[in-house]
Design a protein around this nucleic acid. Structure first.
Lengths: 144, 144
DNA sequence: ATAAAACCTGTAGTCACTACAGCTTCAAGC
DNA sequence: GCTTGAAGCTGTAGTGACTACAGGTTTTAT
């Protein structure tokens, strides 16, 4: 019979948390494991593999829904992989957009900080800069 | 008497939403405006300024809590601005870390996608790559 | 045998909104 | 002045992806 381990060991081995594992089970991302005589979850290496898959995908920024789709896809190994490819491609586009946006924020914060002459709040450029409209993409009317 | 406008006009002028404005009021980021005879909110230019300040700060990634601190600071204009400066500085560090992290993800997704030979799911590198450990920073034991 | 650590379920809290239900009020056209 | 539809009101629930807690049971180590 297969070697099994507790939820605590699985959390430790995977670098995640006990609560997260139980949460993934309730939303169906992890299959329900067997229980021992005392009703405690006993995991196998297959659970570990699945959990690591989910954690990696989350680390890459995939939503739970996207991961669910990938798992569903992997249950039909003879289908073409265009869909899986598409999920990753969309994610890549999204990551690139987030990088671009964050770089704008970085520049804006640098601008904000460099203009601060460390006086009192009344003359603080940080607060002032936020009240004004720097590299702002928002559609609003100009400040008075 | 001052010119006032409705919550809808304020939303439109600021590029935000009616619900968001009411939400900011309930959590104390916007002061409660006067009401007209029919109990509807009537805003002034000062409300608009405050809202734009909050929206800009949110766009820059500041948390509601950080914005609350900045607003509190701005009520004491004679204090030194070191604290406001510090909030922006922490935010800049955070933004830079997020950028660095996203760039790792980008590289990983590129790697994942470029190795896909567009066959069937069984041989799909996208799913396979997620199951394995690329540029992964997570502390877990190696896959079998 | 006992005590501490780990586990269980179920529920509530987090953040920053967003959506909805079921009302009241306002503005424009006739 | 009347009607109608848009806009406003309050209060509550839902979102995503967990996280924390209360109050119990089981396992493990001594």
């Amino acid at each position: 019979m297969e070697r099994t381990f507790s939820i605590g060991k699985l959390a430790e081995a995977s670098g995640s948390k006990v609560e997260t594992i139980r949460y993934y089970e309730t939303i169906g991302l992890l299959p329900e494991p067997e229980r021992n005589a005392g009703n405690q979850r006993r995991y196998t290496a297959r659970h570990y593999d699945r959990l690591v898959f989910v954690l990696h995908a989350r680390d890459l920024g995939l939503s739970i829904e996207a991961i669910r789709q990938l798992i569903d896809l992997s249950k039909h190994p003879d289908l073409p992989c265009a869909e899986a490819d598409e999920i990753a491609r969309r994610q890549l586009l999204d990551v690139r957009q987030r990088i671009a946006r964050l770089k704008l924020l970085e520049a804006e914060l640098e601008r904000t900080l460099s203009s601060c002459s460390h006086g009192t709040i009344a003359e603080c450029k940080v607060i002032e800069a936020l009240a004004q409209c720097g590299a702002c993409e928002r559609h609003h009317r100009p400040t008075r």
